[in-house]
């Protein structure tokens, strides 16, 4: 078994100082889920600590979107338990920011960037926008690097700009937990660099979970790599993998370094919380 002694502080391995237990942003406990009779998840167990930058990787169709929908409370587990910030997904919604992959977007819908971002301030069935929401919108536009687009019509933006506006929309909620579904799909290198630059600024202020089908490399910002595992017939599980710094991935893609996912090095699910087992 390879030693997971980190040669670079950015590497993700099994040895983590056993600090006091940190609270969890999300935890899956033996979660099973089927879609129209087809098992998707089986016995899925994983967790992400608050403040971490976690990446959930897996090939297309592996069930990443299902995991997202379970976290967002858009779907319900058949068995097992999903906790988000210690609560049920539906009750945690107010503290979660979500950046969808395919934001349904109608070019005939007249709306400004500012108004799209303001939607992040919505909470529930009642209530109109308040003056205080404007401040949060401005901060979110700044964090996502789209302040100069504020007054532009949303339908006049490029795809990359729209994606960053949707990041701002999620940030407008001032979330403790930010979830991004394939944030860089179909994005040019410059937009991708800007996006990861923004995520670097947000890291530490909120827990970040990025979902991607790129199973080879992840951003060096990542603290944890979670892979949607092999299909066992009963559905897939989620395995924590090690990752090591690499120069192979085009560095500009992630705005400051990439990690190669070591698919042959599975880490125990509790390796991040002082689990002392060596890498399996």
């Amino acid at each position: 078994m390879p030693s997971m002694k980190a040669t670079n502080t950015a590497a993700i391995g099994g040895s983590v100082s056993d600090a006091e237990p940190r609270s969890l942003a999300v935890s899956f406990e033996r979660v099973a889920f089927s879609y129209r009779g087809v098992p998707v998840l089986h016995d899925a167990c994983f967790h992400v600590h608050e403040g971490e930058f976690a990446v959930l990787v897996g090939p297309n169709g592996a069930g990443k979107t299902t995991i997202l929908r379970l976290i967002l409370g858009l779907a319900e587990a058949a068995s097992g338990r999903v906790l988000v910030l210690g609560e049920s997904p539906a009750s945690a919604r107010a503290s979660v920011g979500y950046v969808p992959q395919h934001a349904s977007y109608d070019p005939a819908f007249p709306i400004s960037v500012e108004e799209v971002v303001r939607m992040g301030r919505l909470q529930g069935a009642w209530g109109r926008y308040k003056a205080a929401d404007a401040g949060a919108v401005t901060r979110a536009l700044g964090l996502a690097g789209v302040e100069e687009l504020r007054r532009r019509p949303y339908n006049a933006l490029s795809g990359g700009q729209r994606r960053r506006v949707l990041v701002a929309r999620a940030l407008a909620a001032e979330p403790r937990f930010l979830i991004l579904d394939e944030p860089t799909a179909n994005m040019d290198a410059e937009s991708e660099r800007r996006l990861y630059g923004a995520l670097g600024d947000i890291k530490g202020k909120a827990t970040i979970l990025v979902v991607t089908h790129d199973t080879g490399y992840v951003s060096a910002l990542a603290d944890a790599v979670l892979c949607v595992g092999e299909h066992t017939g009963a559905g897939r599980g989620v395995v924590r993998h090690a990752a090591a710094p690499t120069n192979e991935a085009p560095g500009e893609r992630f705005a400051g370094g990439a990690l190669r996912v070591l698919h042959d090095v599975a880490l125990p699910p509790d390796s991040c919380c002082g689990g002392h087992e060596a890498a399996r």
Partner: peptide, 23 residues
């Protein structure tokens, strides 16, 4: 007047509106 934000959000992006608790 009462539900403009909810109407706007659910027309613009139903899934996102759901994650913000809009019925």
């Amino acid at each position: 007047l009462a539900f403009y934000p909810q109407i706007e959000a659910s027309a613009f992006d139903e899934e996102f509106a759901t994650t913000r608790g809009v019925p």
